[in-house]
Design a protein around this nucleic acid. Sequence first.
DNA 1: CACATAGATTGACATCCATCGATATAGGTG
DNA 2: CACCTATATCGATGGATGTCAATCTATGTG
Lengths: 116, 116
Amino acid sequence: MNSLQIVEAPVDASCCVPSVKPALSADEAQQRALVFKALADPNRLRLLSIVKAGDSGESCVCDLTEPLDLGQPTVSHHLKILVEAGLLHREKRGTWAYYSLVPGALEQTAGLLESL
Amino acid sequence: MNSLQIVEAPVDASCCVPSVKPALSADEAQQRALVFKALADPNRLRLLSIVKAGDSGESCVCDLTEPLDLGQPTVSHHLKILVEAGLLHREKRGTWAYYSLVPGALEQTAGLLESL
DNA sequence: CACATAGATTGACATCCATCGATATAGGTG
DNA sequence: CACCTATATCGATGGATGTCAATCTATGTG
């Protein structure tokens, strides 16, 4: 570290150079693809939708199994993927596990698209 | 296939009922998942990014093969998936095929997320 | 027409993934 | 502790998917 030469405001970089954004690196692409992989399944989209639509803001697994017409282990599997993608939050209370949307996660993911 | 019943005027739903949006149907989910499937691969994300970053707004396959370090057939395959997802546009001029972003497609896809 | 080049298509192969049944874990209740 | 219920994990399996080499198609060019 070192040399704190000319601190010169970083200002301009963010405001005056609207153009040339370098294309996505392999690592960045890999990272972002993980989130979209989580969204790339109809049943997982429905899970997000149902959790979001619920008025309490959270749903337990037993409430999600029936509308999807899937077995309980399969639903748990999908929920795990959504949690690992940072889209859902899991909270265990007693015997039940409650899933809720991570605040801002969907909006942030949407931002990934526009900033490609 | 088919039977898209429930035509019923979309009128009021969009203006007077801000709350209760019914969760995604299986059909809607299936449809939307197709776009996210197209985005769920790092190399396809990079393709979109490179095409977008190009100053001419379009790129031909030969320009895309090298930066991805993939064979030409594989790149063609990925491009086809992006076109079918409605994200890229393909125009053939002479021997070359030029790919460009479909205007507004990324923004519209981002909208799918917020409106889940 | 003969040949070269850009790109698409095909077939094969390995890997990944969604789903299920069976089982494990953990909290609640008697 | 014995038992029930809610959820997670495991193992197997069939189907989807990414990649490549080989081939086909179409557009130029001599």
